[in-house]
Design a protein around this nucleic acid. Sequence first.
RNA 1: GGCGCCGUACCCAAGUGGUAAGGGAGCAGUCUGCAAAACUGCGAUGCAGCGGUUCGAACCCGCUCGGCGCCUCCA
Length: 492
Amino acid sequence: MLTLFNTLTGRQEVFEPIEPNKVRMYVCGVTVYDYCHIGHARSALVFDVLRRHLESCGYAVTFVKNFTDVDDKIIKRANEQGVSCDAVTAKYIQAYHEDMGRLGIRAATEEPKATEHIVDIIQLTERLVAKGLAYCVDGDVYFEVPKYPEYGRLSKRRLEDLQAGARVDVDERKRHPMDFALWKSSKPGEPAWESPWGPGRPGWHIECSAMSIRHLGETFDIHGGGMDLIFPHHENEIAQSCGATGKDFARYWVHNGFVQVNQEKMSKSLGNFFTIREIFEKSEWPGEIMGEILRYFLLSTHYHGPLDFSDQALKEAKNALNGFYDLFGRLAEPGGDATPDQSLSQGIDRCRTAFKAAMDDDLNTPVAIASLQGLRSDANKLLGEGLSSEGRRQVREAFRSLGHNLGLFQLERWDFNVRVEPASAHLTLTTFSPTTRMEERLTDLQIENKLAERIEAKKRKDFKRADAIREELRTLGITIEDKPDGTSRWKR
RNA sequence: GGCGCCGUACCCAAGUGGUAAGGGAGCAGUCUGCAAAACUGCGAUGCAGCGGUUCGAACCCGCUCGGCGCCUCCA
């Protein structure tokens, strides 16, 4: 039984979908005017994992994640670069898919764009005007916040408190300082669509209301996004949607915590943010592995809390992952013919049960990972006692199927232990220097040949030569492990 | 000024009333020609501090200290 922390009620609640066996979920995506940073990655990953878990619980999940492709920042960026807004948004939407794809984040069921829903947005705005909840001034349309008495319910704020803290110059044409734009008249050169109020473009909040209603209906199950969206964005979405439909909007509101650097929120103004592609580009590990490391790192903390990003944290994630793939490597080697031990199936069952319980408990991924570590430990012990081929297959399969819920353990091969120089251990925005360049790497065949030579040397008891070969490979980032039967295995 | 979050061992991190999961790093041992990996053992008498409630608190209440976020675009 899945429970989720619901921001709306401020407590963890049992999840019950509106329609049995079906879940409709909307998550606020990104404004496409720049490359995504690791904070975007965390949010995308959290909801990717939520979706995977819902599916593993047997729900048919309709997952909608939008792109905001009309916005002040996009216009600014287009002007700076002397290109059209379309060019800007197309570029960063593609980059989004590339970056998230490298993290193993699956595409949503629907990924609507604001510009494709102008009609829906205008119609929703008209409904609000007709109901007297919105008004038009000089071609702009504003939502009149005091007309919606529930305003502040999600963010637990009172209208009076908000006014006291207002630090922004208030547009005098607005009836109330907190009123927000549904529709903005366009200046010359800006993207514009015809509307009952003249040429203009949508405000930020209205698009999510329009798109979620279009794709999921007026009331749906889960609405998610980063913590910073609670106010004002989600608060405004609720006001618009409920105001227009008179019905409940989303039933469960799920928000993920921030990625921080040195205990501070990553932000452009502080200059302490890392884009996803920069992390991949500067990584000393191959892309597939870096993706899994990042994923493991991002899931090693509960989604609701803050998460500090650092070079060391990444390295710890990588070390932890090494242990798993080390095991998988051994599991891939042939074992005996015996029927798998009973303790094996008990170990796997124990892990499955613990894993499910952790995920059901508000997506407690750190505990879910701990359950996998427990199975790793069990499997290593069984391996020491001589696990059969069938047993090995079963263990690997358990890791693969459970790991699938987190997007982990799907790789066939894991070239790890690429050497890292201590000097590059500080991730100061520009470091991440690879020690072993790809072109310097030995091919598998070259390594096998070296290994064969070393085994010969060992047979001759020429340990000096054997050690020299091992040292030679070690400097190239290859680690050799001798097995009891006289043969060796290697890894990067 | 208002609203809210956080503070658990060297590091990361679970735990929301019943006596501190897990991982990483470290140390010791087993194994090994030597290693590596694996396995075994060691590691918070205490959960920022001080009070209070309770048979019992990291968990509840109060105060203090420290850090952070939101109230403006923001995952």
